[in-house]
Structures are given as C-alpha cells and as structure tokens.
C-alpha cells in the first residue's frame, strides 16, 4: 500500500463555486475573472452561455433599459402533464430565474440609438417559446413598428414549448406576422443567435433578421439531436449546427465575438439610418 506524504504537494483543488473548467481548452478559469470577461474564456475565447440579464447589460447603454411586459405569465392551455404538471414546471422555472417567462423585452438605447430589445433566457425552460414568449416578441415588434425603432432580438432557445402543443407552434406564425409588418415598413431588424438557437425559434423570427449575427461556437440548427437520431436513425456529424457552419453555408451574416457585438449592431443600425431623419426610419 502506498502511503501519501502528508507534507508533500497536494493536487490542486478547484472548488466548483469558484472555478470553471473551459470545455474547449481545459483551462481552469476563476469565476469572477470569467464574469468580468463576459463569460468568454480568457485563454481560448470559448463563449460560455451568458444570462439574459447580463446580456441586456452588455448590449444596452448604461441605465437606458426599461423593461416592458415583465409580468406576463403563462397559462396551461392543454392541461399538460408529463412527469409533472406544466404549471409546476413554470412555477419551478419562475422560482429559479426570478422571471415570469423565457424572454426579457424592453426599450433601450444601443450605442446611442433607441431600440426595442428582446433577450431570450435559456435558463427558463430552455428558452422555449410558448404563448408568453410569442406574445412578448410580437408586442416588441409591434412597438418597434409603432415607434419606428429598430428591433434587436437575442435568441437562445431550444424551440417551441412542447407543453403548450400547437398553441406554441402557432407562435411561430404569430411572431413572423409581426416581423413581416416591420419588414414592409422598412424598419431594421437584427437578430443575434447565441448558444443554443434551435427548432421553432430558429425556424421563425430568429432566421429572418435583415442582419443575422451569431456568437462563436454557438449551437444553431433546426432539429434537436434526439429528434434527428429518432427520425433518421443516425447522428449528425460533429461541427454541424455550429455558428461557423451556418456562416459557411450562407445562413448567418457574421460570427461576432461577444465583446464586439454591441459596436457591430450599432454600426449596422447607424448605416440603416435615413439621412436627415434623426433616429427614425422612413416609410
């Protein structure tokens, strides 16, 4: 039996509440430092998920964000029960995130430009889109149209919320309808696809931005891995459904690192501004 020398070097210990290991390069990152670097690995640039609140903070100008429709919450249109009833799942998600549903919407200034901003929250039931997400995104688009402000949506979602069945599916048509009106009115719409953006959210408003940006390495795709293997009996090759893959195939305009996102969106919105009509978009 080997005896351990009690005075020798101990293996390094990384308490998990203080340290996070980068899944890409294996580097141990001090949590505080990681947060200060916008949840991007300081060594290799791996983009960790970023919470919705932090996302609003890095995109909106300081103290400019005014949240709207914060207290909309979901009903249970189907009376859905799987391993537990849907209202219990919502209550648990609300308790976990402190939010009523999976998207934050509001008015903000972005690089000095007044915008309507919507940020999806993956922490809330996988950012899934049910009636509330659909309603808030639609209201955001309708407000952008009424006030003639650009709409910026940061997507992070597993897709439509199964527990709301076809009502969730119909949110795809509902949100797209509002986006189409924005389009017809010549108002800019920018989407940012973050890790992950899949299913019914990618197959609706998230794909339809005038400008579609994505974060490095983000999982972006139509079918979830489990549904694909269930339907066609094979797994998608690795590297499929990544931001860079979509860029290569022409479905994303740019892959933009997190620290440059705000500046880049600001650049496009400025370019789309009509001369002489300060901060307004022409008909």
């Amino acid at each position: 039996m080997r005896l351990r020398n009690p005075f020798g070097r101990r293996p390094k210990e990384f308490p998990s509440h203080l340290w996070t290991q980068c899944p890409s390069c294996g580097e141990m990152l001090f949590n505080k430092q990681l947060a200060r670097n916008l949840n991007v690995c300081t060594k290799c640039g791996h983009h960790f998920k970023l919470g919705a609140k932090e996302r609003v903070e890095i995109l909106a100008d300081p103290r400019s964000f005014r949240e709207t429709d914060a207290d909309l919450s979901s009903t249970d249109p189907l009376g859905f029960v799987d391993s537990k009833p849907y209202p219990e799942r919502i209550a648990a998600a609300q308790a976990k995130t402190g939010r009523r549903d999976a998207v934050i919407t509001g008015d903000a200034a972005l690089a000095g430009i007044p915008v309507v901003l919507a940020v999806m929250d993956f922490e809330f039931m996988g950012g899934s889109m049910g009636g509330v997400v659909g309603e808030k995104v639609t209201r955001a688009a309708e407000r952008a149209l009424a006030e003639r402000k650009p709409l910026v949506i940061v997507a992070a979602s597993g897709g439509a919320r199964m527990q709301e069945g076809t009502i969730a599916l119909m949110q795809m048509a509902k949100t797209i309808g509002a986006i189409a009106r924005l389009d017809a009115a010549g108002i800019p719409f920018v989407t940012v696809l973050t890790d992950p953006t899949t299913g019914g959210v990618l197959a609706s408003f998230a794909s339809l931005g005038d400008i579609v940006l994505a974060e490095p390495g983000a999982l972006i795709g139509f079918s979830g891995a489990r549904v694909t293997s269930e339907t066609i009996g094979e797994k998608l090759p690795t590297g499929f459904q990544r931001a860079e893959f979509l860029l290569e195939h022409g479905f994303v305009d740019q892959v933009v690192p997190r620290d440059q996102l705000k500046e880049r969106i600001g650049f496009f919105l400025n370019a789309f501004r009509v001369a002489g009509q300060d901060l307004r978009w022409s008909l």
Binding site: S223, T231, L236
Partner: peptide, 15 residues
C-alpha cells in the same frame, strides 16, 4: 431533420 436539410437551411426555408 437530416444533415442535408441543415446544410441547405431547413429553418430559414420554413421561416
């Protein structure tokens, strides 16, 4: 839901 669909933009075409 297969790889060819993803490659050619299944989500975008539906949207």
């Amino acid at each position: 839901p297969g790889p060819e669909g993803e490659e050619r933009g299944q989500a975008e075409s539906i949207a």
